[in-house]
């Protein structure tokens, strides 16, 4: 589904990302971990054509991301709060995104209704603008908005950060369900090793812009990751 080749990004001669080859098949739940500055957000930004690659390319479902815009209809993302329109209520925001993605009001209502649990009564009918919601609640709204319009690729940057424990658990269920049952390719990044190993079938570790580990999740994965990040390499 997503094929990355020879991709690199430099800011003033400082290389922040360099991925030789990365192939994410359709329906995979893919996790990206790494310390601050490892290049996770850079990679996602390149995937969304928000920044220009220095070299190389990403193909999303055979569409060259930085040349064509045809990847947009089947791709959606929530990177940070700048994806929200602060002066709208959550409902208005969902409808707006829905309209952009060719969904009518009742489609959106039907989809959003499935996430009542996830919202925990703090998003809908609040009579509050998104900018007045807490960080965590903003995140909930943003994540659900990314699910509108049956996207085939969903990109979530640090979806677990700022969420309360209950919501984290519910989010995990949602992501698993998307990948397993609906065949959606889900890309997430996280600092929380436990969550990623729980949710993702495959985990890639980035370090200073380079892939240093590419693991298919198993029972040992968490241990291996913990060892890696604590600096004690187990062979």
């Amino acid at each position: 589904m997503i094929v990355t080749t020879n991709l690199s990004k430099k800011y003033n001669a400082v290389e922040v990302l360099n991925i030789n080859s990365l192939d994410i098949p359709k329906g995979q739940s893919f996790g990206l971990v790494g310390n601050n500055g490892a290049g996770k957000t850079t990679y996602f930004s390149l995937l969304l054509d928000l920044i220009q690659p220095t070299t190389g390319q990403i193909k999303n479902n055979n569409v060259l991301v930085h040349e064509s815009e045809d990847w947009k209809p089947f791709t959606s993302a929530f990177i940070d709060e700048s994806f929200l329109i602060g002066y709208l209520t959550a409902e208005e925001y969902f409808y707006f995104i829905g309209e952009l993605r060719g969904q009518n009001k009742s489609d959106v209502d039907a989809l959003v209704a499935q996430f009542e649990d996830f919202f925990h009564g703090e998003i809908l009918n609040q009579k509050k603008y998104l900018r007045d919601l807490s960080k965590g609640n903003q995140k909930k709204a943003g994540i659900v908005a990314a699910l509108i319009g049956n996207p085939e690729v969903i990109i979530l940057d640090e979806p677990f950060a700022n969420l309360d424990p209950t919501t984290q658990i519910r989010l995990k269920a949602i992501i698993k369900d998307l990948a397993e049952k609906k065949g959606v390719t889900v890309l997430i990044s996280s600092h929380d090793l436990l969550h990623v190993t729980d949710v993702c079938e495959r985990i890639v570790v980035l370090e200073k812009g380079k892939i240093v580990k590419d693991l298919i999740t198993s029972k040992e994965t968490l241990k291996e990751l913990e060892a890696h990040f604590s600096g004690v390499e187990v062979e």
Partner: peptide
């Protein structure tokens, strides 16, 4: 500008 990134990644 506050949500330009979102607009750019949407089908607009």
């Amino acid at each position: 500008s506050e949500y330009y990134k979102m607009l750019m990644s949407q089908n607009i």
